[in-house]
Design a protein around this nucleic acid. Structure first.
Lengths: 325, 325
DNA sequence: CTGAAAGCGCTTACAG
DNA sequence: CTGAAAGCGCTTACAG
């Protein structure tokens, strides 16, 4: 079954391909009689015409695709919400958002070559080489690029550090002086975990508190050993890398017989759906997802129009206080 | 900055575009001297050449893209794992998987027209019209299509019903005779929820048990009212639509002072990461995600090669017994 | 108001 | 062993 092309529609409607294109694209300034328009639409409908995306992109010199690159770990509802927002915002401009789960640079390079999207939006930072290659190929790159120095100088890291600082602030305000940091054993999370820890550490130092003790746990199972060792070391409050980790800590405390929050306070990050139904309900840091998505959409649009992007919004992350801390 | 094309590479390497294409694509049977190959690769590298995906797709008559369509709700780690598997399996054939969060048929239609992927894989069933239109446009459609009759006759529904039956079986074996079904208030889940309930209902009827009482709750908050009403009606065990709902039921039981599992047993679906760290640890039904992903990949490949797809694998869903039921 | 024609960048049968 | 040329399906400046 051969492909239905605009030539077929033209033939069926008794007009030229030019006219078909004008009508189907609603080209402004094209004056085509209503009767002709009707015939063309009818023919397209009848034959099930779908224009070739490839031909269109080739001719136009650009596609309508935006690829959102996610990190290679379960993103959770927060990021999913962000993607939904982004999709809507860009759809209003005729752009389509497709999501790619990033595994390694090799796969990413293969992907953008195979797709040549209009823009690539990174929800996790890109390696500098990747970003450069994409830009060179005319693809707009939106989102953080890993800084060359490990210190982390960009907006991205600043925002992550702010999260750690918020956790420390809440815990310190409640009178805790010995804080522990619990992260996951998943190496892919390293970059986020490090940045959040750096913020936590700095905030502790500022207040003259001890350096936070750090331990990695596996999410999805009770972090019993971690709770025992932290608790034994005199830690009275845990800042967790995220809610998933915090849930593991809660379960570990239950197993170890350490009451929360009286003997051990716990604070997570994300305000994920599980936080409110945890036992006890989990205190956590919520990020302003809608605003961040809005900003990413704005950045994409700015990049397309050749405008400068506005600066990353002042964070607006905030502590959601529940029972666990 | 104009686009770098294969003509630029040809010029830089002092050969024809034909030779460039042969070398860069490793076309079998093309005998090009090693020295020439070197020069071409070097030139491509130096100029940062990325072939135009649009031109290539237009010429070849097919793209390398496979779009995985997810339902418009948070999919959770189980489906994410499935997607990872699928991506890997298809990458081995040079195919790229991109994910689209399906909102409505309109958006889906816009999308496949804008992308014209090789295949579309549905993780939730397609409306018959959507499936037909895509097939007509030469796109391979893989995954379930909503049956016209509400009863649900396909593999998809059978597998969902099996999940409900498994829950009922486990609960009945533990001596429960009055089972309640708790689903979410999210209308988008309707199809899955209905199918699972149908399986539960049938299994109860088979055993001569009462029709399960049904109630919808909002996930992410304690389902206290639901627990009270179910418990008050003599229900001793709850089959939840999924783990998220089960977690809400657990929290509701805590608030209502109903001990789990002694006064109310709870069983979920998904074996999500939160299940094991819940209080008490959640009994749930695990689906064989890896095998399902494998199957979807096989189906896509079969569709591309024009072979018949093997039947959907016998389910292999199983109950993971923990403390809650 | 409508059509013939060029050209986007690639691959590949064909000729040398 | 290598190159000139056709053609994938579209859009759009141009001519009528």
């Amino acid at each position: 079954m051969p492909r239905v092309t605009s030539a077929d529609i033209a033939r069926a409607a008794g007009v030229s391909r030019t006219t078909v294109s004008y009508v189907l694209n609603d080209t402004p300034g094209a004056s085509v009689s209503d009767a002709t328009r009707q015939r063309i639409h009818a023919a397209a409908e009848r034959l099930g015409y779908a224009p070739s995306a490839a031909a269109r992109a080739l001719r136009r010199g650009r596609s309508d695709l935006v690829v959102a690159v996610l990190p290679d770990w379960p993103v959770g509802p927060v990021v999913e919400g962000l993607l939904d927002h982004l999709t809507d915002a860009l759809a209003a401009r005729g752009l389509f958002v497709l999501v790619h789960h990033h595994r390694d640079s090799r796969a990413l390079a293969d992907l953008w070559r195979a797709v040549t999207p209009l823009a690539v939006v990174g929800l996790a930072p890109f390696a500098p080489d990747d970003a450069r290659a994409m830009t060179r190929a005319g693809i707009r790159v939106v989102g953080a690029v890993e800084p060359a120095d490990a210190a982390g100088t960009g907006d991205f890291d600043a925002s992550q550090r702010g999260i750690g600082a918020l956790q420390a602030g809440h815990l310190a305000a409640a009178g805790h002086t010995r804080i522990g940091y619990v992260t996951t054993d998943d190496p892919r999370l390293g970059r986020f975990a490090e940045a959040r820890l750096a913020g936590l550490r700095a905030a502790c130092a500022e207040r003259g508190m001890a350096e936070p003790a750090t331990v990695a746990v596996r999410t999805g199972e009770p972090a019993t050993a971690a709770v025992r060792s932290l608790s034994g070391a005199g830690v009275t409050a845990v800042a967790a890398y995220n809610d998933e980790v915090a849930l593991a800590v809660l379960a570990g405390a239950r197993e170890a017989g350490v009451p929360v929050p009286s003997r051990l306070a716990v604070i997570g990050v994300d305000d994920s759906p599980g936080a409110r139904v945890a036992a006890p309900p989990l205190t956590t840091v919520a990020q302003p997802v809608a605003r961040q998505a809005e900003h990413l959409a704005t950045e994409v649009l700015a990049a397309l129009d050749g405008r400068d992007a506005p600066p990353w919004p002042d964070d607006g992350a905030r502590v959601v206080v529940r029972a666990s801390a």
